[in-house]
């Protein structure tokens, strides 16, 4: 099956079996290795990517579903300013998750930043629920996530006000 989609801001065309799992497509056909594969059940979060800017488990998405859609992997997100700010807060708090869970957690935080959910420990805990690795302190993760979300929402609010003022 020939699939055309956008991958990390570039138009791509690939010929693969229609039911190939997207995590395998990304790792085998595009050599994008930062997103890992572990459970093949959509439970652990290590294969998380952004599909149309929403977090999904790429082991639970099949190739034919990518047609005409936009995919961002770890490699693509690393080039964004948002990632630089997230990583800075990680480093400031000495929070360094392992390579298996790092991107699941980052994309979960990204999803929360762009949601309308109230920022509290319950909603943050729910948002981070899909990541099962315990390489690092869950309490520290919550604290770091809260700092990131508050900082990013402040930036987004500032940008909205600027756009309104310009109108």
């Amino acid at each position: 099956m020939i699939i055309r989609f956008t991958l990390n801001n570039e138009e791509k065309t690939v010929d693969v079996p229609a039911t190939k799992r997207v995590i395998d497509l990304l790792r085998e056909d595009f050599d994008l290795l930062r997103n890992k594969v572990s459970c093949y059940q959509g439970a652990c979060g290590s294969c998380s990517i952004l599909l149309d800017n929403c977090i999904v488990s790429s082991c639970s998405i099949l190739a034919f579903e990518l047609k005409g859609r936009t995919v961002v992997t770890a490699e693509g997100f690393m080039k964004t300013e948002e990632y630089q700010r997230i990583n800075h807060i990680f480093q400031k708090n000495q929070y360094d998750p392992c390579d298996f869970c790092r991107w699941g957690k980052i994309f979960a935080i990204h999803e929360f930043i762009h949601s309308e959910e109230h920022i509290d420990s319950d909603s943050l805990t729910r948002a981070l629920k899909g990541n099962q690795c315990n390489c690092s302190s869950p309490t520290l993760l919550l604290s770091v996530a809260e700092q990131i979300v508050k900082a990013e929402k402040k930036i987004n609010t500032g940008r909205k006000h600027e756009r309104t003022a310009r109108k």
Binding site: V56, S57, S60, I61, A108, E111
Partner: peptide, 9 residues
């Protein structure tokens, strides 16, 4: 229901 990734699918 599930996780954010599950709900987006």
């Amino acid at each position: 229901v599930g996780t954010p990734a599950v709900r987006n699918t």
